[in-house]
């Protein structure tokens, strides 16, 4: 790693042992050392301390460059990891399928012919046909659309709720925090599937909208609590006090200083959560309280496949595999993100 502090660096210094590593911490005021085992704390940290406390230095600038470097690092780290690349590719493929399933499907999933009922996989019907005689391959592909849409919609809204609520709770503390805390406690007590059954068993219509709404209503608590603890941790940093002393408004502090630093675990969990939501929707549809026919959902397909496990296992295997792979890719993505973002946060 090329060295950073300018004129102090003596001649004949050690050659760069890992040549291809770019200069990571050149201009940034970073708190942590690249190699704590090796590098001495001594002079370097003293210089950093002085830099941070220089009068007249805009702490915002300091803060921004710091977080900018964090994200820059993270991206560089991510790009290299095979886990990230694999999951990113898988998700990309799935998203494309969900957007334009027609591109990949061999038949119209609704073009069903009873004569062709329950055919085994063949060159004509790659995944065989179901009870109604619909091409299973195309149906499975179209199921992607429902799952991915619900996954993304639900997590999107949950993130908004969680970030807003969590920031307020974490930042303002006090009574607001207690109230929000009690409310999340109450929500925590209700398991998702149970709650889903309770609500959906009395709703009249069950479409992507209702199911998404139900999952949003039931699922914001975990993420909110996570945001809250991240915000609490970020709030403890000195630059928050510095910003406040300089007269920044609360909203400004939250948005420009705290959130960028608190957001990383939220991103990680959100990615994983998309997978969780997709699995939850499939479970609810499987139980019959989620989407109904003629909607195409993997959960529904698996439910109808139940009775024919022995005679026609493929009815279960294909949507099951797609569902598993989809959930898996999001969880994998979350794992990859955590590896890249987490150690930096410590």
């Amino acid at each position: 790693m090329s060295d950073t502090t300018p004129s102090d660096q003596p001649e004949g210094m050690s050659p760069d042992p890992s040549g291809e590593e770019p200069i990571l911490y050149a201009d940034t005021v970073d708190e942590y050392l690249p190699r704590d085992v090796v590098t001495a704390a001594g002079d370097e940290s003293d210089q950093r301390e002085r830099f941070r406390q220089s009068p007249g230095l805009d702490t915002e600038l300091v803060d921004m460059t710091r977080t900018a470097s964090l994200w820059g690092d993270a991206w560089r780290q991510l790009r290299r990891r095979p886990v990230f690349i694999i999951s990113a590719v898988m998700i990309l493929i799935l998203v494309i399928i969900s957007l334009v399933p027609g591109l990949f499907a061999t038949h119209d999933p609704r073009d069903c012919n009873l004569i062709d009922s329950l055919l085994l996989p063949s060159s004509e019907h790659w995944f065989g046909t179901d009870l109604q005689g619909c091409d299973y391959y195309s149906r499975t592909l179209y199921g992607t659309r429902v799952s991915i849409s619900i996954g993304i919609i639900v997590v999107f809204f949950i993130t908004i709720i969680a970030v807003t609520g969590g920031s307020i709770a974490g930042y303002y503390g006090g009574v607001t925090d207690s109230i929000i805390g009690r409310i999340t406690d109450i929500w925590f007590v209700i398991p998702t599937i149970l709650g889903g059954i309770v609500i959906l068993s009395v709703t009249r219509s069950r479409n992507i909208g209702t199911v998404s709404l139900v999952l949003i209503v039931l699922g914001w608590a975990t993420l909110l609590r996570l945001v809250r603890s991240s915000v609490l941790a970020a709030k403890a940093n000195d630059y928050v006090d510095a910003a406040r002393v300089m007269g920044a408004s609360n909203a400004r502090i939250i948005i420009r200083h705290i959130l960028p630093n608190a957001i990383a675990p939220v991103i990680i969990v959100s990615a994983i959560y998309i997978g969780v939501v997709i699995a939850a929707e499939a479970a609810l549809s499987f139980l019959g309280v989620g989407l109904q026919l003629p909607a195409i959902s993997w959960g529904l397909m698996i439910a109808t496949a139940q009775q024919r496990i022995i005679t026609a296992p493929y009815l279960l295997i294909f949507p099951g595999a797609f569902l598993s792979v989809t959930v898996f890719s999001f969880i994998l993505m979350g794992d990859a993100l955590r590896d890249a973002l987490d150690p930096k946060l410590r």
């Binding site: 499939a282 698996i302 496990i309 279960l316 099951g320 569902l323 598993s324 792979v325 959930v327 969880i331």
Partner: peptide, 22 residues
């Protein structure tokens, strides 16, 4: 564990039925 986490519980249930039951 990663694989088990990814496969939804009802799919696992069916797999269990097929493998251990049938």
């Amino acid at each position: 564990t990663l694989v088990v986490i990814a496969i939804p519980i009802f799919v696992l249930g069916f797999i269990g039925q097929i493998v251990f039951g049938v």
